[in-house]
Every structure is written in structure tokens, then in C-alpha cells.
Write a protein that binds this DNA or RNA. Sequence first.
DNA 1: ATTGAAACGCCTGCGTA
DNA 2: TACGCAGGCGTTTCAAT
Lengths: 153, 153
Amino acid sequence: MDELDSEIVRLLQADARLSNRELARRLGVAPSTCLERVRSLNRRGVIRGYHADIDLAALNRGVQALVSVQVRPLNRSVIVEFKDTVAGYPEVLSVFVLAGGDDFVLHVAVQDLDTLHGFLLDRLSKRPEIAGFRTSVIFQSRHNTVLERLPEA
Amino acid sequence: MDELDSEIVRLLQADARLSNRELARRLGVAPSTCLERVRSLNRRGVIRGYHADIDLAALNRGVQALVSVQVRPLNRSVIVEFKDTVAGYPEVLSVFVLAGGDDFVLHVAVQDLDTLHGFLLDRLSKRPEIAGFRTSVIFQSRHNTVLERLPEA
DNA sequence: ATTGAAACGCCTGCGTA
DNA sequence: TACGCAGGCGTTTCAAT
């Protein structure tokens, strides 16, 4: 991860569809050099993928919420299974496994409040390992798509 | 958003670097047709962008946390300014504005626990509108990159 | 709205430094 | 490791349907 790698990573975070030529032009290197750098970043797992960012409203998912969940008993197999299961629900965007008061936070996006209510009551709360959960509707959210490398500690 | 648009959206969520030719081939339409569809999705704002997904550890951001924040007074200008300010902090990945007990949740990623502690104490808690906050370290997280369109309510 | 064809530009392997 | 070139391939425009 030298300066050139960092710049590539920055530019591809901003626009994953930049052509290799354009990338090379902006960095002041030859296209073949740039291509090899990008391939290396992919191979090393620095770049994990390239994804289109879709408007949630266009996917009929205008209502978002964060759901804090506590599960019991709190052991490895319960955590792993709960995580994998809820990550497979179509309503769920992200799953966070936490240290502290809550064990999980789920980021969900659904059509409307009725569907949210139904999801919580008919699907989530039916799971026997759930000891409790608390839901916060999201009014707005903002995501930084370009993240810089932080300096060494 | 007919069936063809939905398929394009699905495929570009999975791999934003798919060539137009390959996209067209998988959908069984001509490349020129496919290109026009993709452009339309961009114009209409259905596709909001294309972003490389970078390994946080490679960015020196191996420690993540969710920070729940309460601000006072809870009015529009305080909310807007707080959101815009913290979204500009390099440590912050996402900001959620919530209904309910907490006013905000911040998703942050930093080098290590010391830096997290420093960020919370030296930068975040210095802001006068903050009435309180609670931090949960993230052990694991999982994100669904391909989201399907949900059926009409 | 979709298509095929043609002009244009990009990707990428290889030889060189 | 970085570069330049060249052949092959993808992208994009446009007239026609």
C-alpha cells in the first residue's frame, strides 16, 4: 500500500467504473502499470468487490430501521447461527455483532411501516433465541463512500 | 423498473465492473439495448453510483464501533449541523438520524481502541450539543451487497 | 424500445528497459 | 517494477424497425 495504491483505492471508491486508461491518466502512470496495480489490489483482497449503489426507494424499500437485538444463551453457536440466518432475510441490509449491552444491530429496509411491524413480530420475534429487541426508525442516513487510509497508530 | 431493469440492477450490485457486453449477454439482449437501459437507470437516479468495496484493515481501520448519540436541543438546525459535521469526520463511515430513544447512530472505523477512545473523548464529546452517547465495539459485521426489489405492499 | 453494424477507443500480453 | 506498442475486443453511435 504505497501512495499509488492508495490513490487507486481512493479513485475506485469514488467511481468503480473508471476505465483503466482514465485511472492511469489521473495518476500519471502507464495503463499497463495501473492495470497490474489494480490486479494486485484485487488479489491481495484490499479491493473486496465493486458494487452499484441503488436507491432504496426504487427497490420499494423506503422505510429503514435499526433493530438492536439481545439473544440468549450468548454463546458462539447461537451467535453464528443467528447472524447467518438474519443476514439471509431479504429485509436485512447489514448485521453487526456487538460487544456491550446489545448483542446485534440489524439494519433493515422494507416497503413501509406495516411491513416493518410484520417483519419484527412475525419473523424476527418468532426466533426462540431472541431475548429482546428494540427498534429505531431511520429518518435519514448518510454514507461516506470514499474512505481514506488512516495514519499508523 | 420492469424485469429487465431489475436484472440489470441485480447484476451491477453483484459486480459493478461487468462489461456492457457481458451484461447484455447474460440478459439476452443486444449490447446497445443494454447500454441504453443502464444509462436510463443512471439518469433516473435508480443507480446512485458505483463504488469499490475496500477491506477496512487495509485502510488501517481494524476497529469498528457503533456510537449512539443524544443531542440537545433536539431541533432541525442542531440535527442538520451535527449530521453534516460528523459525516465529515474521517473516522465516520455512516450517520443515521433516528426516531426514538437515541437521536443518532454513528458507524466509525479507526486504527485501534486507543484511537477510538481518543476520538470519543477529544473530538465527539467536545461538541456542546451532545447530551450523551454510548459506544458498542463491533466484533463482526456482514453486509448484503445485492438487494432485491421487494413486492408492492 | 430494440436492434445490427461500423467507427472508435480501451484492454492487456509481451518485449524492453 | 514500470513502460510502450499492437492486436483483439468492447463501447457507443446511428439509421432502421
